Amino acid sequence: MLQLYCINITKDFSDDKIQNLLRYVSNETKERFHKFHFMEDSLRTLYGEILVRYISRTQFNFDTQQIIFTKNKYGKPYIKDNPLFFNISHSGEWVVCAFSSSEIGIDIEKIEKLNTNIAENFFSEYEYETLLNTENKKQLDYFYDIWTLKESYLKWLGTGLSTPLNSFHFHLNEKNIELNNNKIKNNLYFKQYPIPEYKLSVCSENNHFPKIVKEISVKDIKF
């Protein structure tokens, strides 16, 4: 089982709706919501938890009020005492969430200008050299392909940046995404989804990926 969902934080926004949704999130999320200076940051935090709670109820018949979140020692969140795995990512106007019966990792990034310094410092030597040898008009796509794949893999691992980004690398071709990491023996699968002006990558232990990322409208979320 693998399901993917997204929310656009710029659509269907209203103060009344936000105040209502705040009633259903954890105290930690409420505190973070009010600490942010910019509303966009607050909404990304709020919608992340709301998406988990809403999908858990509507798709998996969980009692929303009984969902308690816990974290591993690196900060990766889980639903306490429950076999459902999830992972959240957000960037720009999108919040995305992946659900699975096994460990899962997802990452979305808004495509901005190319930063070769980041690539030099955090890509493997192979990836960095491949970037430099890629024709100019395709470099930006390659950079964000690699960046989101790396992040999705680290989020699957659940170890955060304790695993160096340049300690493994990806090889991309027209048909396959191959992870090269001698320390990991699991059979992992990767898939990328098109969202205009963004890159989205998913790392999973099974290859039953959905065809699309299903968009959820904030106005339709009810508890």
Rank of each mutant, 00 (worst) to 15 (best):
L4K: 02
I9L: 00
K11T: 06
R23M: 08
S26R: 04
N27F: 05
K30N: 15
K30C: 12
H34I: 09
H37P: 04
H37R: 13
D41V: 00
R44Y: 02
R44T: 05
T45R: 11
L46R: 11
L51W: 07
R57E: 10
F60N: 02
Q66E: 15
F69P: 07
T70E: 15
K76T: 10
Y78R: 14
I79W: 00
N82P: 11
N82L: 11
F85G: 02
E93Y: 00
E93V: 01
S101C: 10
S101I: 10
S101V: 08
I108H: 05
K110H: 10
A119G: 15
A119Y: 12
F122I: 14
Y128K: 09
N133E: 14
N133S: 14
N136P: 13
K138R: 11
I146M: 03
W147D: 13
E151W: 09
K155R: 07
K155P: 08
W156S: 01
W156Q: 02
L157V: 11
T159W: 08
P164Y: 12
P164A: 09
N166A: 02
H171V: 14
N180A: 05
N180F: 15
L188S: 00
Q192M: 12
L200A: 04
S201M: 01
V202Q: 00
C203D: 04
N206E: 13
I212Q: 14
S217F: 13
S217A: 15
I221A: 06
F223N: 08
